[in-house]
Design a protein around this nucleic acid. Structure first.
Length: 271
DNA sequence: AGGCAGGCTTTTA
DNA sequence: TAAAAGCCTGCC
């Protein structure tokens, strides 16, 4: 089936933006995306058209929301004038095409824990291993197997060695603790989706192994709190180098997280 | 109390 | 060898 996307949408940039780790480039025009228990092949066809291997209703129920197609990222970009913030404007010009995906909160909770102190290939490998070790096996439209991201119960059931085999290193305890918190109902992700950003971050940082940065990643990428602002080493450099007199969080609300994502990608690509 | 150094697994460049 | 979408513990 063919789809048309007129707003900002650049699969290359999204795949490299550090928010999703189960996008795999399979050829020059095509990405294979695993999200929840679905797998999508999406190929660039024309300027704003793409081929997808699902029907209309599956696209509407699973992928339209995943790609956050109700939000205009062009409009979010245009809230900032070039003379108002030359650095941010330039970052957005370079990284135009990024969107904030609506990913599963539980998957983003574990994924964000795994990202700490690691680079993207290593993160992808751990997530893939974890899914293979205890996630359900399914088959995509091309007959290839893929593994659904594990449930909390499936991760809780793993022992130390099995988690270490997923190359989690010292993070294995954090992954286990987060899975346990969700499995036990100490953390209710459905309720967090209705909570404020601040309340969500407060609850998430109560979990062993989850600090402010990871909690904000979960809020932004898993709870779609577009104002959440994950502050990592790269963003710290941005704030130090480009905003020595302070960053205008108030005037960029409620899209601080979106702007953060442009700046993050831009600074990593232009060191 | 709040800030800071040191350590942690493994991979990547 | 250092750095990588950090966090915890222990010490002051």
């Amino acid at each position: 089936m063919m789809i048309t996307i007129t707003d900002d949408f650049d699969p290359e940039k999204i795949a490299a933006s550090g928010q999703c780790f189960r996008w795999r480039k399979v050829d020059e025009k095509t990405y294979r995306i695993i999200a929840a228990d679905h797998c999508l092949y999406i190929s660039q066809d024309g300027d704003q058209t793409y081929q997808v291997d699902c029907d209309e209703s599956t696209f509407q129920t699973e992928w339209y929301s995943y790609f956050d197609l109700d939000e205009s990222y062009q409009a979010v970009r245009e809230r900032i004038a070039p003379e108002q913030d030359p650095f941010l404007w330039q970052a957005m010009e370079h990284e135009k095409g990024i969107r904030i995906l609506r990913q599963d909160p539980w998957e983003m909770l574990i994924t964000s824990v795994i990202t700490q102190n690691r680079n993207i290939p290593a993160i992808q490998r751990s997530i893939e291993l974890l899914s293979q070790v205890c996630g359900n096996r399914q088959y995509d439209s091309r007959g290839h197997e893929f593994f659904v991201f594990p449930t909390p119960g499936q991760i809780v059931a793993l022992n130390e060695q099995q988690l270490l085999d997923c190359k989690l290193g010292y993070r294995w305890k954090y992954v286990h603790a987060a899975a346990e918190a969700v499995a036990d109902g100490k953390i209710n992700l459905l309720k967090l989706q209705k909570a404020s950003c601040g309340e969500a971050v407060r609850q998430l940082t109560g979990i062993y192994g989850i600090g402010n940065k990871v909690a904000n990643c979960v809020a932004l990428f898993g709870l779609h709190q577009l104002d959440a602002f994950p502050q990592d080493v790269w963003i710290n450099r941005v704030l130090e180098n480009e905003y020595p007199n302070g960053y205008p969080f108030e005037s960029y609300s409620p899209y601080n997280g979106v702007y953060q994502q442009y700046m993050f990608a831009y600074y990593r690509n232009h060191p």
